[in-house]
Design a protein around this nucleic acid. Structure first.
Length: 957
RNA sequence: GGGGCCGUAGCCCAACGGCAGAGGCAGCGGCUUUAGGUGCCGUCCAGUGGGGGUUCGAAUCCCCCCGGCCCUACCA
C-alpha cells in the first residue's frame, strides 16, 4: 500500500513548497477546522430556529441533496461507501456556487441487530458501541471534507429523534384508509361517521353479528382497531428459537436457517404489529410515474407490489364455499383440482375422517387417515421458511384432504389438496389448479396423476406441457356460457361476467405486497408508544408522554431456547423489565394500571422519515415545521409530487427502505402534515466499486491487504494467487478503508480519484495505483498559482490571450455540464485539459490571475481544500464555498472558423475550414471548391447533398 | 425461469445520429538524478463483442446472438 513516503516527496530533494501529502494534510485539516468554526455549511431555513441568515439567501432558489444515511458499523467506512457521499457533496457544493441555497447533511441509522448482537457478545451496552461507532464515522466523514450542515445531524437512536418516530407511529395508528376518498383519515372521523350511522364498518372489520349501534364499548374498540393503518394481528412469522427472536424474511437463508448463527427457523403464528401498506398499493404503483428514478428501481417496486387482475371464484365444498383467486378465470373449465395452503383456515374442516372410497394409494401418502396425512404434511411445511418454500425447482409435494369441491362451470367434483406451493399470504391462500395452462399445476398433476384438460388451443408446433400463451379457448362451453373460440382476454371478460351473474365469483385485483410486519422481539429499537388495559386492546399514549424512552437495563439479550424447540415462544427483552412494563398512568379517566407494549419497532422505522427531520432537527413542537417542509420539499413544476431533489444510495434499498419511506410519507401527506406526497423526487444509485480479491490454488480467498505483486504475478507470502475483482466485503477479504489513501495523497486527491474513474452511477474496478493521476493534477494546479521553490504566488495581472480565453470558456461550459449531469469524470477531464494548456503557456508561472481563479473555482466542488487554500493565496479572505461559479461567455464558445468534414457517400474525403456561421449553401460551395472533393467526385452527378451548418457536408453520388 | 444494466486502445473511461479520443493509468523514449523514486517533456495505442436492419451517415436507434454484472423468483 502506498504511503506518504512512497510518493517520493522526501524533504531532501522535492522543492520545499510542492503540493505533497503532508502539505495536503495540513491544508485539509486547517480548512476543515475553519469551515466548522465559521459554520460555512450551515444552511438557513426560511423560518424557525435555524433561520439565521436566511435574508442572505432568500432570493436564491434552493436544493435539498441527500444520501442514504449509513448504519454506523464497527468496521467503519470502506472505500465504496464514500463514492455516493462524495458525489452528493460535489454536486451540493456546485449547486451552492451556482447560486442555490443548498441543504446537505448526514445522520445515522443507528438502531439495529448488529449493535445488539455485538453488545450481547461483549456485554457492552448497545448505546455505548453505537455512539462510539458514530464518533468514528463523524471523524471519517469530516476528514473527507464533506460539506455537511452538522447542526442537522441526527441519529435515529436519539430520544429527541425517536420521540417523533413514535409520534408518527401514533399518527398511523390513529388513522384508517378511506377507500372512497382514496386517502388516510383520522380514526376520530371514522368513529364520528359510525356513530352518526353515515358509515358502516368496512368489510371484514366487524366480527360480531350485530350492527355498530348495538355493539358494546369493547366490541366497538375492536372494530375500530380493525380499521387502523397500524394494527395487531396474528401473523405467521419466522421464529428462530436459537436466537430468541423473530426474523424478517430477508434475514433467512435459502435453506431456511437464520443468516446469523445458522439456526433453524420455524413458521408460527404470533400476535404482531402490522402496517397496512397494502392500502397504498395502487398509489405506490401509480406515483412511480411522476418521480425521476432509475427504470430498474421502479420496475423492482412494481414487481414487489405485484398488482395482478383476475377473479375470485367460489367453489362449493362440503363445508361451505372455498374461495380462490386466479388471474386466469378463462381457464376455469380446466380446473381439475384445488390446492389450499397448509395454513389455510379451512384445512381442518376440509380434512375428512376417513379416506373416500377408492382413494388411490399414491394420494394417501401411506397415512391411515386424511387427518394423519395432513397433519404430517403441515408439520413438515411449518419447518420450512416461506423463502425456502418459494425457492424454485423443488419437487411438488402435498396431501389429499379427502374432500371434493364443485367446479362451478362443469359441475365436476374435484379433489382438494394441501400443498406448500400455494402461499397463505397471497390471494386467498387457495387456488384452482389448471394443469393444462399452468406449469406448477402440471407438475403437481403429474405427481398425483390428476386429470389435465387443455382449455386454450396451443400454438402450432407447441410440444411442451402446460401452455401459458394466448390462443382460442377450447373445451370451454356449456349452456349459457360459450368461451370456445374466444382469445384469452375476451374469454376472461366473458367468464367474469358469467360468474358475477351467477353469484359465484367476481373480477378482482390482488397484490403480491403484504402488510408490513412491524414488531420485533429485540431491545435495541424504538419502543411502541402503546399500552394495554384490562381488555388487552391497545391504547395510544398521548403525545405529552412521548418519548417513551428505551428503559435502561444490562439484561438486553433476547431469551434464547434450544434451537429445535419450535413450540417455544419469544420473550422480548423489554418484557423482563416488570417495573417498566407494569405502569400506572392517568390517560384521562384517572390513574389506572396498564401494561406496556414490549416489542420494539424494526430498524426501518427511523429511515422512513429521517429526511424530514434534517429539515427541522431542533423543533420540539412538531416533527417538521410545515413552512420549512414546503420550502425544501414542496411540489413545484420540476417535482410535481415534491420530495428531496436528489437522493443517492445503493440499489440494495430499491424496495424495502424506499417503499416503506414512500408509504409513511403518503400517510403523513394524507393527514395534512406534508405538502409533498413523495419523499425522494430523483433517485440515483451509485455504482459499486469492485476491488481486487485473491484466491489460492484451492479457490479460497486470502487477505487482499497481504498480497504483493511481482512482475505482474501476485503472491501471498510464497504462494502464488489469482487476482479477480469483486464486491467489497468480508467474504472476499478485500475491504480497504479510505484512511490509507488520505494519508498517502490527501482527501482532495482521494475525492478526485473516486469521482474520476467513471460516472457516479457506474460500477467499476478500483485500480489503486491510478490514484497518482489525480494527485499529479493537483500538484500541477498548485504550481499554476504557487512557485514551488519560494512558496510565492506567481500569477500575473496580464490579460488572458485570445486562444486561452476561448479554451477557458469552453472549459467552463463543459465543466458545468459535467457537474449538472453528475458526470464529474468529464468535468475533471476538462479541468485537466485547461490546466495543461495553462501550464504549457506559462511553464514558469505568471499565468493571468483570471485564468488561475477560474481554474480554482471550477475545481472547488471536487477538491475543496486545495481550492480554498489557493483562493486564499490569491488574496481572497473568505471561503469560496459561496463564490459564484464561473459563467461561460456564449460568444467565445464558437470559433470564428471551424473545421468540418466533407463526406462522399458517408466516407470522409476531406476537411475544410469555413466560417462558423456559414449556412448550408456556403458550406456546400466551400466543399465543392476543395480539390480533394473535386477529385473524389470525379465529375459524377451528386444525387443528394446533406449540408448541416456547423457539422458536415455529405455528397451522395 | 423472469427482469434490468453493460461490452470503445493493455486498463479505467470520453464522444447532440455527423472527422472514433476529452482525461487518466500502465508501457516506451528523453530530461532531471550517484541510483531508485518523484517531477517534467514527448510518444505509442482501438474502429467500438458478433451478425443483421433503419439512415445520406450508426459506438449511438431497432432485432437476434455471445460474454459479464446486478436484481428477482412456486404470486396462482
Amino acid at each position: 500500500m502506498s504511503t506518504a513516503a512512497d510518493t517520493g516527496d522526501t524533504a531532501a530533494d522535492a522543492p520545499p513548497f510542492r503540493y505533497t501529502a503532508a502539505l495536503a494534510d495540513a491544508i485539509e485539516t486547517g480548512w476543515q477546522d475553519r469551515w466548522e468554526l465559521e459554520g460555512t455549511f450551515h444552511t438557513p431555513n426560511p423560518s424557525g430556529p435555524l433561520s439565521d441568515g436566511f435574508d442572505r439567501v432568500a432570493i436564491r432558489s434552493h436544493a435539498y441533496i441527500a444520501d442514504m444515511f449509513p448504519y454506523p458499523s464497527g468496521a467503519g467506512l470502506h472505500v465504496g461507501h464514500p463514492l455516493g457521499y462524495i458525489g452528493t457533496d460535489v454536486y451540493a457544493r456546485y449547486r451552492r456556487m451556482r447560486g442555490d441555497n443548498v441543504l446537505h447533511t448526514m445522520g445515522f441509522d443507528a438502531f439495529g441487530l448488529p449493535a445488539e448482537q455485538y453488545a450481547v457478545e461483549t456485554g457492552q451496552h448497545p448505546r455505548t458501541t453505537t455512539y462510539g461507532n458514530i464518533d468514528i464515522y463523524v471523524a471519517q466523514l469530516r476528514r473527507l471534507g464533506l460539506g455537511h450542515d452538522t447542526r442537522r445531524r441526527i441519529a435515529t437512536t436519539d430520544p429527541g429523534f425517536y420521540r417523533w418516530t413514535q409520534w408518527i407511529f401514533l399518527q398511523i395508528f390513529n388513522s384508517w384508509y378511506d377507500t372512497e376518498q382514496d386517502k388516510a383519515r383520522p380514526v376520530a372521523e371514522l368513529i364520528a361517521e359510525l356513530d352518526a350511522g353515515s358509515r358502516a364498518p368496512a368489510e371484514g372489520s366487524n366480527p360480531f353479528d350485530r350492527p355498530w349501534a348495538e355493539l358494546s364499548e369493547v366490541q366497538r374498540r375492536q372494530v375500530v382497531d380493525n380499521h387502523r393503518l397500524a394494527y395487531r394481528s396474528d401473523s405467521m412469522v419466522n421464529w428462530a428459537p436459537g436466537l430468541g427472536t423473530v426474523l424478517s424474511n430477508e434475514e433467512i437463508t435459502a435453506d431456511g436457517r437464520s443468516e446469523r448463527g445458522n439456526f433453524p427457523v420455524f413458521r408460527r403464528p404470533l400476535a404482531q404489529w402490522n402496517m397496512r401498506i397494502t392500502a397504498y398499493a395502487d398509489r405506490l404503483v401509480r406515483d412511480l410515474e411522476h418521480i425521476d428514478w432509475p427504470d430498474k428501481v421502479r420496475t423492482m417496486q412494481r414487481n414487489w407490489i405485484g398488482r395482478s387482475t383476475g377473479a375470485h371464484v367460489a367453489f362449493q365444498s362440503p363445508v361451505g364455499p372455498l374461495e380462490v383467486f386466479t388471474t386466469r378465470p378463462d381457464t376455469l373449465f380446466g380446473a381439475t383440482y384445488i390446492v389450499v395452503a397448509p395454513e389455510h383456515p379451512m384445512v381442518d374442516a376440509l380434512t375428512t375422517a376417513t379416506w373416500p372410497e377408492g382413494t388411490a394409494e399414491s394420494w394417501t401418502s401411506g397415512a391411515a387417515t386424511p387427518g394423519e396425512a395432513v397433519a404430517a404434511y403441515r408439520l413438515a411445511a411449518s419447518r420450512r421458511s416461506e423463502l425456502d418454500r418459494q425457492a424454485g425447482d423443488r419437487a411438488k409435494t402435498g396431501a389429499f384432504t379427502g374432500s371434493f369441491a364443485t367446479n362451478p362451470v362443469s359441475g365436476t367434483q374435484i379433489p382438494v389438496f394441501v400443498a406448500d406451493y400455494v402461499l397463505m399470504g397471497y390471494g386467498t391462500g387457495a387456488i384452482m389448479a389448471v394443469p393444462g395452462q399452468d406449469e406448477r399445476d402440471w407438475e403437481f398433476a403429474e405427481v398425483y396423476d390428476l386429470p389435465i384438460i387443455r382449455t386454450v388451443q396451443p400454438a402450432e408446433g407447441f410440444e411442451g406441457k402446460a401452455y401459458t400463451g394466448d390462443g382460442p379457448a377450447i373445451n370451454s362451453s356449456i349452456d349459457g356460457l360459450a368461451l370456445d373460440g374466444l382469445d384469452v382476454p375476451a374469454a376472461k371478460a366473458r367468464i367474469i361476467e358469467w360468474l358475477e351473474a351467477q353469484g359465484s365469483g367476481r373480477g378482482s385485483v390482488t397484490y403480491r405486497l403484504r402488510d408490513w410486519l412491524f414488531s420485533r422481539q429485540r431491545y435495541w429499537g424504538e419502543p411502541f408508544p402503546i399500552v394495554y388495559d384490562e381488555t388487552g386492546l391497545p391504547i395510544a399514549l398521548p403525545e405529552s408522554m412521548l418519548p417513551v424512552e428505551l428503559p435502561e437495563t444490562d439484561d438486553f439479550s433476547p431469551k434464547s431456547f434450544s434451537p429445535e424447540d419450535a413450540d417455544s415462544t419469544p420473550e422480548p427483552p423489554l418484557g423482563r423489565l416488570t417495573d417498566w412494563v407494569e405502569v400506572e398512568l392517568d390517560l384521562g379517566d384517572g390513574p389506572k394500571k396498564y401494561r406496556r407494549e414490549t416489542n420494539t419497532m424494526p430498524n426501518w422505522a427511523g429511515s422512513c422519515w429521517y429526511e424530514l427531520r434534517y429539515l427541522d432537527p431542533t423543533n420540539t413542537e412538531v416533527f417538521v415545521d410545515p413552512e420549512v417542509e414546503r420550502y425544501w420539499m414542496g411540489p413545484n413544476a420540476d417535482r410535481p409530487l415534491g420530495g428531496v431533489e436528489l437522493y443517492v444510495g445503493g440499489v440494495e434499498h430499491a424496495v424495502l427502505h424506499l417503499l416503506y419511506a414512500r408509504f409513511w410519507h403518503k400517510v403523513l401527506h394524507d393527514l395534512g402534515h406534508l405538502s409533498s406526497s413523495e419523499p425522494f423526487h430523483r433517485l440515483v444509485n451509485q455504482g459499486m466499486l469492485q476491488l481486487p480479491a485473491y484466491t489460492n490454488a484451492d479457490g479460497f480467498y486470502v487477505p487482499a491487504a497481504e498480497v504483493a505483486e511481482t512482475d505482474g504475478q501476485f503472491f501471498w507470502g510464497d504462494v502464488e494467487v489469482t487476482q479477480e475483482f469483486g464486491k467489497i466485503g468480508k467474504s472476499l477479504k478485500n475491504v480497504i478503508g479510505p484512511e490509507e489513501f488520505i494519508a498517502g495523497y490527501g482527501a482532495d486527491t482521494f475525492r478526485l480519484f473516486e469521482m474520476f474513474s467513471g460516472p457516479l452511477d457506474q460500477s467499476r474496478p478500483w485500480d489503486a495505483k491510478a490514484i497518482v493521476g489525480p494527485y499529479r493534477l493537483l500538484q500541477r494546479v498548485w504550481r499554476v498559482v504557487v512557485d514551488e521553490r519560494t512558496g510565492a504566488t506567481h500569477v500575473s495581472d496580464d490579460a488572458v490571450p485570445e486562444e486561452l480565453n476561448r479554451l477557458l470558456h469552453k472549459a467552463i461550459h463543459a465543466v458545468r455540464g459535467g457537474y449538472e449531469t453528475l458526470r464529474f469524470n468529464t468535468s475533471i477531464a476538462r479541468v485537466t485539459e485547461l490546466n495543461n494548456a495553462i501550464r504549457q503557456a506559462y511553464p514558469d508561472g505568471g499565468a493571468p490571475r483570471e485564468l488561475a481563479e477560474s481554474l480554482v473555482l471550477m475545481l472547488a466542488p471536487l477538491a475543496p481544500h486545495i481550492a480554498e487554500e489557493l483562493w486564499s493565496l490569491l488574496g481572497h479572505t473568505s471561503s469560496l464555498a459561496w463564490e459564484q461559479f464561473p459563467i461561460a461567455d456564449e460568444t467565445l464558445l464558437v470559433d470564428d472558423t471551424i473545421e468540418v468534414p466533407v463526406q462522399v457517400n458517408g466516407k470522409v474525403r476531406a476537411v475544410i475550414s469555413v466560417p462558423s456561421d456559414s449556412d448550408a449553401e456556403a458550406m456546400e460551395a466551400a466543399a465543392r471548391a476543395e480539390p480533394k472533393i473535386v477529385a473524389a467526385l470525379d465529375g459524377r452527378e451528386t444525387r443528394r447533398v446533406i449540408a448541416v451548418p456547423g457539422r458536415l457536408v455529405n455528397f451522395v453520388v
